Amino acid sequence: MMPSADILKDVLADLRIAASFVTIVPVASAKPAGEGAIARATWALPVAGLLVGFVGALAYGLASKLGLAPGLAALLALAATALITGALHEDGLADTADGLGGGRTRERKLEIMRDSRIGSYGVCALILSFGLRCSALAAIGNPWAVMLALVSAHAAARAGLPAFMSLVPPARPDGLSARAGSPPGRSVAIAFGLGTLILALALGPAKALVGLVLLSLAGLILARLATRQIGGQTGDILGAFEQTGEILILLVAAAFLHAGG
């Protein structure tokens, strides 16, 4: 087999792994991924984010065509993205809020984060997440601008995940993040490059820079909190990172695109 064919095969395999990792779309191979395959495939997470963003944009566009108000269209767009991801990241955000906010010891915090039940901190985090994202999309209003905001937010929010996974060690040896492994430097760089490119094309270089700065600051703060309180990151922490990034990019998009800048 030609080397170029091998490369294409690896790229397609990584795309399938990334899509199956963050969505409920049945694209993964029936054959279990080999050791390190998930970590290697993290470069494709921004591409999977594009898929999620387009689904949300389609829902928003259809709702707008039916004459629904921007607020209702925004809620339907968020519902569509939560549906295609199985609310994976929302679940992570809620568990992170409950664990970091409600536990007194490291062991108790991790125990709370593993509990499928949701507490008051988790409820408040979800209300804020949906409220901020819905308000941002409704403020943007125009379906084309909403599409740009959604695809850039979902791509950029996932583009930082490989770096976060690489720099912050797993908090426990048996969690989802630990099983995924630490992404290699090449995957980290490609994911970051793709996220930056998508963000710049969608929002423009200046706005993309603002978004990247905010994402970096949010990542540093979350990494410090997770390391101090539970000794590292978990799958729930990664979900909280994605949700935080999504919120920040949508707020940047609303601040600039709605203002016509």
Rank of each mutant, 00 (worst) to 15 (best):
M1Q: 04
S4V: 14
A5I: 14
V11E: 09
D14I: 05
A18M: 03
A18S: 09
I24Y: 07
A28H: 09
A28Q: 14
S29K: 08
K31A: 15
P32N: 12
P32E: 09
G36D: 09
A37D: 15
I38K: 09
A39T: 05
R40S: 08
R40M: 04
R40H: 13
A41I: 08
T42Y: 01
L51H: 00
V52G: 07
F54P: 00
V55I: 15
G56L: 07
Y60R: 05
L62N: 05
A74V: 08
L76M: 12
T81N: 00
T81R: 00
G86C: 07
G86M: 07
D95S: 04
G101M: 08
G102I: 10
T105F: 05
E107P: 05
M113G: 07
R114Q: 09
R117F: 00
S120H: 00
S120K: 00
G122H: 08
V123F: 12
F130V: 15
F130A: 14
F130G: 08
G131R: 08
L132P: 05
L132N: 06
L132K: 07
C134P: 01
A145L: 15
S152E: 02
A153Y: 12
A153C: 06
H154Y: 11
A155D: 02
A156M: 13
A156C: 10
A157W: 04
A159W: 09
A163E: 11
M165H: 01
M165V: 03
P170G: 02
P170S: 04
A171M: 07
G181C: 11
G185W: 14
R186Q: 12
S187F: 09
A191E: 06
F192A: 15
L194E: 10
L194N: 06
L199D: 09
A200V: 09
A200D: 05
G204M: 09
A206T: 11
V210A: 13
L212W: 07
L215H: 10
L220V: 12
A223M: 06
R224Y: 11
Q229K: 15
I230G: 02
G232W: 06
T244Y: 01
G245L: 06
E246K: 01
L248Q: 05
L251A: 02
L251S: 00
V252N: 02
A259L: 14
